[in-house]
Design a binder for these strands. Structure first.
Ligand SMILES: [Zn+2]
Ligand SMILES: [Zn+2]
Ligand SMILES: [Zn+2]
Ligand SMILES: [Zn+2]
Lengths: 132, 132
DNA sequence: TAACGTTATGTAATAATATAACATTTATAA
DNA sequence: TTATAAATGTTATATTATTACATAACGTTA
């Protein structure tokens, strides 16, 4: 069961933009695209992004400083994320693999750390880029 | 067998600083610390960092925009990295777990992606911070 | 050594990413 | 309603990273 979050005005504008784009978007590119809707300052964008990340509607691709809509309907919070990133065309997709997520969610070692979140980024070449 | 890289002057200064610090360091903190050694501009730092990452002497902690000396003598290149990060004290350590690295290095799915690199960051509370 | 290509350095300017501080408004719920 | 939390608006600024161009040092081979 996914909690329904009523997005605020700015949050909705920004989520819709990212979601429709189908890929990762950078904060200032988002800003540029929503200026016609009245969102004029970086902070307005970053605040909405923070909230959307917090509730799991989007995730941050750390290695790219970019944000992508969650492609996995069950992500309630951004606490167990895995992505595949093509280093040639920069296509990004969220990996949804229950064996992988189980393995990582259950991971523990003898360091004494109590893990409660992870983010994994795989890099390589996508199908298209491989064949070039 | 690890290839011996002869570090250049700036690379050596910057690697030694990071290595001695024992933890992650940020680029501008590095810059501040090496100014007395004649490294005066951000670009000099970033160029050395790029090279050190490339040859696996340091790794970038993407979620923190920080750089840490490789704690795993066998990392020749930064292509299979895993870290544990305490969200309270920001202590970072490199995870060296052969089962984990085998599992991730062999990971593949039906997306058609050919993976050749990954970076994994675990977040949680370290021993000390848990007991506070 | 001399010539060549590669790697590293120096320097200035600027781009890209992100947050601080403060005032105000809107939504939520007791 | 009234209190509280959440979201917004705005300006300024901090932090992280790259472009562009010139010069120097290094490694290889003729
Ligand atoms: Zn997701
Ligand atoms: Zn591709
Ligand atoms: Zn390493
Ligand atoms: Zn800690």
């Amino acid at each position: 069961m996914q909690k329904e979050h009523n997005l605020s005005k700015n949050q909705k504008i920004i989520f819709d933009l990212i979601d429709k784009s189908g890929g990762p978007m950078k904060a200032y590119s988002i800003l540029f695209n929503v200026q016609k809707k009245g969102i004029k300052a970086p902070l307005q964008v970053y605040r909405a992004l923070d909230k959307l990340v917090e509730i799991g509607k989007i995730h941050k691709i750390e290695s790219r400083n970019a944000f992508i809509a969650c492609q996995n309907s069950s992500c309630q919070v951004s606490k167990a994320t895995a992505f595949s990133i093509c280093e040639s065309c920069e296509n990004v997709s969220e990996i949804s693999n229950s064996k992988l997520s189980k393995y990582l969610s259950n991971f523990s070692d003898n360091s004494g750390m109590k893990y409660n979140k992870y983010n994994l980024e795989f890099f390589g070449l996508c199908k298209k880029c491989k064949s070039k």
